[in-house]
Amino acid sequence: MDKVITASNLTKKFGTFTAVDHISFEVAKGEIFGFLGANGAGKTTAMRMLCGLSLPTSGDATVAGFDVYRENEKIKRNIGYMSQKFSMYEDLTIRENIRFYAGIYGMSDEAIVKKTDALVSQLQMTGNEKTLVRELPLGWRQKLAFSIAIVHEPAVVFLDEPTGGVDPVTRREFWNLIYQAAALGITVFITTHYMDEAEYCDRVCIMVDGRIDALDSPAGLMKEFKSTNMDGVFLQLARKAQRKAD
């Protein structure tokens, strides 16, 4: 199977503080990979290194076949990114936002028009293309933001707590979009605070104090930690954290 993300002994130090401590894992093409951890466990730092935004202190990693040290510009071309905080330009319309982000990735005008129509109808937003993003309900915005993050059909999409604060139905609709993207072969790398969402992932890794303390399918983890849900697994692991003060 194709390995879309590989990390081996990936480490990031800030001065004497080791934010990410020799983590190693691989993610396959089309896999939905859950990345969990308490605040300050090192999730964001690890994700930044993989996105080519921050250089590792030591260790190796590749994303979409590109090296994080030398080819971070190529990595940026081949990934999509969305976070809860990332909302599109609120004073642009749906169509303008899609156009803008597709344009950044160098898509041709023709392709953009086609893609925009497909995307709008897939999201059932037809007729609203000229609506300003700030006038959309939060759930729509998040779904739109996700669609825009994968508009250039990247190899990997990084989702940083994408579903915070949305209603339970929209949250599930959002997961439908994730499944569809994964079915198209896009690898999904996601962090979340909702433990039931962790169970939707193919595999889950849990970070504690900068290390990966558990990595398996949700079912495997529940078995290993003798818990009926991921909440129990997470609490058992996160309670061991020494890094409390940060």
Binding site: A38, N39, H193, M195, F234, A238, R239
Partner: peptide, 10 residues
């Protein structure tokens, strides 16, 4: 509890 991890929430 928004934006706070599961342990702190508990």
């Amino acid at each position: 509890t928004t934006g706070v991890d599961a342990v702190s929430r508990k």
